[in-house]
């Protein structure tokens, strides 16, 4: 019973990681950029929701505004910071992403202060806990799992079935060939950032409902863990990011349940090291062999 309880807790946390990891993986898949500013977009999403709810406006408006804000921010970053570097060496892009990350954290600190603020989580999801056959399941857990499943199903449909989704896959496999097909790669790349940011916005709300506080560095560790999840799943792979997120979430909760809660972060990064040593392509990453 304890095992099942912890598994459910782990899946809740893991599905938040999965939503965020998807943004890392999709952007990497399309322009080979590890977008380290992705975590900080979550922080911004958290603040947007917090400020709107604190102003007494409906939480539903806050959720929508937060997701919309994340999308707009991600597209702005892509246009201002990454597009001009499209043909630059990849290391320049990576350093720029780290720079954007520090920029967002410091701007947030300048405007909102460094102290953590309490997130009004019960305004978004009421604090109710159900007892199902001896298991304690909170409404937050149920909503988190349901929203994550629906978001990931919607993403899968988008990528597999729609014209834009197919264009995303084509650009990620061969940008030059995609251009020869008449695909507008700038638009496709911006769209990818927007989709990743929408998932991050949803992830931000769900994360803040579980850990109800926001501070300028909220996105730092969360983003790094989601990055580990993306690598574990095989960076560039969408189902991989989902699996990797769930696995990291469960691993963290299990470590906590065993009484080593101060070790959770260390365990997550140990997983990263082991993956990079043993199977750098992750669960579902593309093999490096190319057909000649």
């Amino acid at each position: 019973m304890i095992v099942l309880q912890q598994l459910i807790n782990g899946l809740q946390l893991g599905s938040v990681y999965a939503l965020i990891a998807l943004g890392y993986s999709m952007v990497y898949g399309i322009i080979l950029l590890l977008n380290f500013a992705h975590g900080d977009i979550i922080m911004v999403g958290g603040y947007i929701a917090l400020l709107i709810i604190s102003a007494g406006i409906s939480p539903l408006v806050a959720v929508v505004a937060s997701v919309a804000g994340c999308i707009v921010l991600a597209c702005l970053i892509e246009k201002a910071a990454y597009t001009p570097l499209r043909s630059a060496p990849r290391i320049s892009l990576l350093i720029t992403a780290i720079g954007v990350s520090y920029f967002l954290e410091n701007v947030a600190q300048l405007i909102l202060g460094a102290d953590p603020r309490v997130f009004p989580n019960t305004a978004v999801i009421p604090s109710v806990t159900y007892n199902v056959g001896g298991l304690n399941i909170s409404l937050t857990t149920i909503v988190t799992l349901a929203v994550a499943v629906v978001s990931m199903a919607a993403l899968t449909l988008l990528v597999q079935k729609t014209k834009m989704g197919k264009a995303m896959r084509a650009v990620s496999e061969d940008m030059g060939a995609a251009q020869m097909m008449g695909i507008n790669i700038n638009r496709t790349i911006t769209f990818t950032f927007a989709v990743g940011a929408a998932l991050a916005g949803i992830g931000a709300i769900l994360y803040c409902c579980r850990y109800p506080q926001v501070k300028p560095t909220t996105g730092y560790l969360l983003g790094l863990k989601a990055f580990v999840a993306a690598v574990l799943g095989g960076i560039g792979s969408i189902p991989g990011a989902m699996l990797g997120g769930l696995a990291i979430g469960v691993a963290e909760v299990v470590v906590t349940a065993l009484g080593y809660s101060t070790w959770t972060d260390a365990v997550v990064f140990a997983i990263l090291i082991v993956v990079l040593l043993v199977k750098p392509t992750g669960f579902m990453g593309a093999s490096m062999n190319e057909k000649v």
Binding site: K163, K166, A167, R169, A170, E173, D174, A177, A178, M181, I183, K291
Partner: peptide, 13 residues
């Protein structure tokens, strides 16, 4: 060609 996509999806592209 887009090797990870189906023949039909390649044509759609």
């Amino acid at each position: 060609i887009f090797t990870k996509m189906t023949v039909e999806e390649n044509l759609e592209m």
